[in-house]
């Protein structure tokens, strides 16, 4: 269980994280979503004890990271792939990490095998592609067989095959009862992996919800209709208390229910040319959420 409470972090005049609170539960994959610069990495770095918060707390199973003895056994984390030690080989890197936390030295080769890097164990990390570095970052996270996994942008740089692989891997970890928190600015990927979404913008929580509800909560459900006379349909729908508005060649009806619209058109002799439900894409929902935040800030 990860608990972030009233977390605040300033860099000079800039507020990177602003009173942020959310939780990530055991047995679930929690997606931590926000545009670049929203404060995701700062939040995760505070959670992992790399940075100090100005206010608030960030705990893992009730304790701040600094208070967890041999933390790699409890929390596995992946921070940005650019900061891996490029002069070391991956085997050497995992070797000293294991040694520092008294992890069985056999785990290094095991996790490299698990992330598909067994063949590159003796290769310098500097020669790795971004995708390979991301895999190595995951190997680091898995090294101590931790109960809690925290991943910063793990999908970046992975090919489609890699994305499917990481999705299955994280699903498996959550199904084993572990807490999985991963950040991303890629909503589509995250919505396919995560059970729950925490959306932030400008360091503040916008919403914590499940991916399915993110759509209907933010965009609502509409029915779009194209008929022989949209204006007449609008008038008939208004008689039944259903609102609508013109949307190009379509009439956008404020109801999630196609049947009402089709029934009304039929009973008034209107020819229905097209009739469908629309919930909008996750990207639209995301933009609506974070764009609203921008507008609020700008005024």
């Amino acid at each position: 269980m990860i608990n972030i409470a009233d977390l605040t972090k300033h860099y000079g005049d800039h507020t990177a994280v602003d009173g942020l609170s959310f939780t990530a539960a055991e047995g679930k994959v929690t997606g931590f979503l926000g545009p670049n610069g929203a404060g995701k990495s700062t939040t995760l770095r505070i959670l992992l004890g790399l940075q100090k918060a100005d206010r608030g707390t960030a705990t893992l199973d009730g304790r701040p990271y600094r208070e967890i003895p041999r933390p790699l056994h409890t929390v596995g984390s992946m921070i940005d792939a650019e900061s891996l030690p490029t002069q070391q080989t991956s085997a050497h890197f995992l070797g000293w990490l294991a040694r520092s936390n008294r992890i069985d030295p056999g785990r290094g080769p095991q996790v490299l095998e698990q992330v598909g890097l067994a063949g590159a164990a003796r290769k310098k990390i500097g020669a790795f592609s971004l995708g390979m570095r991301q895999r190595l970052g995951l190997a680091v996270a898995l090294l101590g067989d931790p109960r809690i996994v925290v991943l910063d942008e793990p999908v970046n740089g992975l090919d489609p095959e890699g994305i499917i692989w990481i999705r299955n891997l994280l699903r498996g970890l959550a199904d084993e009862g572990r807490t999985v928190l991963l950040s991303s600015h890629l909503l589509d990927e995250l919505s396919q992996i995560a059970d729950e979404l925490v959306v932030i913008g400008h360091g503040r929580l916008i919403t914590q919800t499940v991916p399915e509800l993110l759509l209907s909560d933010v965009l609502g459900h509409h029915v779009l209709a194209r008929t022989s006379d949209n204006a007449a349909l609008a008038a008939r729908l208004a008689d039944r208390g259903v609102g609508s508005s013109p949307d190009g060649a379509y009439l956008k009806v404020d109801t999630p229910d196609c049947d009402t619209v089709g029934d009304t058109a039929f009973s008034h002799g209107l020819v229905v040319l097209e009739l469908f439900e629309r919930t909008g894409s996750l990207e639209e929902a995301f933009l609506a959420l974070t764009g609203g935040e921008d507008a609020e800030r700008d005024t």
Partner: peptide, 15 residues
């Protein structure tokens, strides 16, 4: 470690 940022991994291993 400081220049590359990899010091973060050392601090993750022992805060």
């Amino acid at each position: 470690e400081l220049q590359s940022g990899s010091v973060a991994y050392s601090v993750l291993a022992d805060p």
